[in-house]
């Protein structure tokens, strides 16, 4: 139990850092796919589909096994962070894109009629409204990302699942307890995150109705 809890620290770190990276990339990718320039749209579309289509674990393995052959040696924690960030960033970019598209055309037109520049319209009119639509989806993605951190145990990052597997090799008779507790701890991390997201959703929807 103690060892598991100490493994929870890197799990939470990975989740938060991965989420920060994914959040950033979501907006980059989302705006990229809505760009006026065909080239930007094409490139960001390709990158997004690439990371969505190739499976998180394959990406992890690729960074872990293949990059060193190209002379790039990353710390295993960095490998986990990059894979999680890019994978969920790709999913997040779809969230950003569709949320921006979901704001009615009339809102753009009202902005134009008040002579706002396209940057002002995006900043003050479109994004604040789109952001509300993004929150629940981002919340779900955050939980998915947390669940994804368990996979990085396979590339020797000593997070919670890794610790549990190591413990089981020594104390096979406690298997039930080890994995039972492991699931409970994951739940103890993800449930507050779910609550936090629901709260944020409520907070930001104030005033809409």
């Amino acid at each position: 139990m103690k060892n598991l809890l100490s493994g929870a620290v890197p799990t939470i770190q990975l989740t938060l850092l991965g989420a920060a990276l994914a959040f950033l990339l979501s907006f980059l990718g989302g705006f990229g796919r809505l760009s006026r320039f065909t080239a930007v749209r094409g490139v960001s579309g390709f990158i997004v589909e690439f990371f969505r289509g190739t499976s998180l674990l394959v990406q992890l393995f690729w960074l872990f096994y293949v990059l060193p052959f190209m002379g790039i040696r990353l710390e295993s924690g960095m490998v986990g962070l990059l894979a999680l960030g890019f994978n969920y960033g790709a999913y997040g970019s779809e969230v950003v894109r569709s949320a921006i598209l979901s704001v009615p055309q009339g809102q753009h037109e009202a902005g134009i009629s008040l002579n706002m520049t396209s940057l002002q319209r995006m900043r003050y009119i479109i994004l604040p409204q789109a952001f509300r639509t993004m929150i629940p989806s981002f919340g779900n993605l955050l939980i998915e990302l947390l669940k994804g951190t368990a996979l990085v145990s396979l590339v020797t990052i000593p997070e919670m699942t890794f610790e549990a597997l190591a413990m089981r090799t020594n104390d096979a008779q406690y298997t039930l307890e080890i994995f039972g507790w492991l699931l409970v701890i994951y739940f103890a991390i993800s449930y507050p995150l779910t609550m936090l997201m629901r709260w944020t959703e409520r907070r930001f929807s104030l005033g809409r109705l």
């Binding site: 939980i143 947390l146 669940k147 994804g148 951190t149 368990a150 996979l151 145990s153 699942t161 549990a164 597997l165 089981r168 298997t175 039930l176 994995f179 039972g180 492991l182 699931l183 994951y186 739940f187 993800s190 449930y191 779910t194």
Partner: peptide
């Protein structure tokens, strides 16, 4: 449902794999 969907499937696999035989 809430519990299962909030925890990693990877860990659930281990749970089934190691615990069921017990």
């Amino acid at each position: 449902v809430e519990f299962i969907r909030s925890t990693p499937p990877f860990v659930q696999l281990f749970f089934l794999f190691f615990v069921m035989p017990q």
